[in-house]
Design a protein around this nucleic acid. Sequence first.
DNA 1: TCGATTCGTAACTAACTAAGTTACATGAAA
DNA 2: TTTCATGTAACTTAGTTAGTTACGAATCGA
Lengths: 149, 149
Amino acid sequence: MKRNSRLSSTLHILVHMADAPDRALTSEQLAGFIHTNPVVVRRTIAGLRDAGIVTSSRGHGGGWQLGRAPDKISLAEISAALGETLLPFSTEPESPGCLVEQAVIAVLDDFRLEAERLLAERLGHITLADLTADFRRRYDLIGVSSHAV
Amino acid sequence: MKRNSRLSSTLHILVHMADAPDRALTSEQLAGFIHTNPVVVRRTIAGLRDAGIVTSSRGHGGGWQLGRAPDKISLAEISAALGETLLPFSTEPESPGCLVEQAVIAVLDDFRLEAERLLAERLGHITLADLTADFRRRYDLIGVSSHAV
DNA sequence: TCGATTCGTAACTAACTAAGTTACATGAAA
DNA sequence: TTTCATGTAACTTAGTTAGTTACGAATCGA
């Protein structure tokens, strides 16, 4: 798994889970999808379990499943559950008492607040079901074209 | 200079430059403002020079000045000149040929495109002059209060 | 012209972050 | 009770970025 691809990789995993709603998938299998290590998967999606987006079970036949219907899981929730920050710039004071820095931080924090609201709103409208539908569309297209040849 | 504070630090520097429009400030002086090294400053704002946001001159009395009026310099330009990415998540394919990944990347890239457009639009409306005005306001307030005591 | 000053940049070091890995305890099902 | 799977801590490795040193190039003043 590459750096900064936690959101993308997690969505990949979740679509696979949505595509196999009848059975639990193990960390091992999920890791295979994104070419990484089972422990990395467990660590990455631990937050999703706490958020109720997925459930996990141990022992024989255990593994991971979606916690609710794909159309009830938005990308905003997933991103938040991963602890990802959409806007990466820091506004930590480094020169306490400097009025210039205070002005910069104030303006930047205002912008960040507004931006995060906007992005969350947009991400809230995209659900896992949308992703799954997009995948099925692609799958059917390939199927047709290979039949045609 | 902390990690991920390049935008914030650069704005800090630029406001100081806007506040001293009559003279060039050296990398050494600028570095002092954000508690870092002159070379780090030169490296960081090199892109701003290429974008015409600042100018630099060598030798005696040399240093850095704004390339144009503060109200003609937007945060969007500054951010772009720094090479900063507002949305940090990666959508590089890691499993070429996987239709699930393709669907994820397609949706994520759509979102990114729209989000970057939105953020750039917002940042385009904030200028260095706004920051400078905010700083002056804070400065005057302190002045008044210290007189009052 | 010479020397002081300042930027431009390459090369290296250090610190930090995040993924990858190993190991083992816990819990559940056959 | 054996096997399979997660939960998690601890450590290693790789990659990124700030910090530093060094030195060449350009510019100004004496």
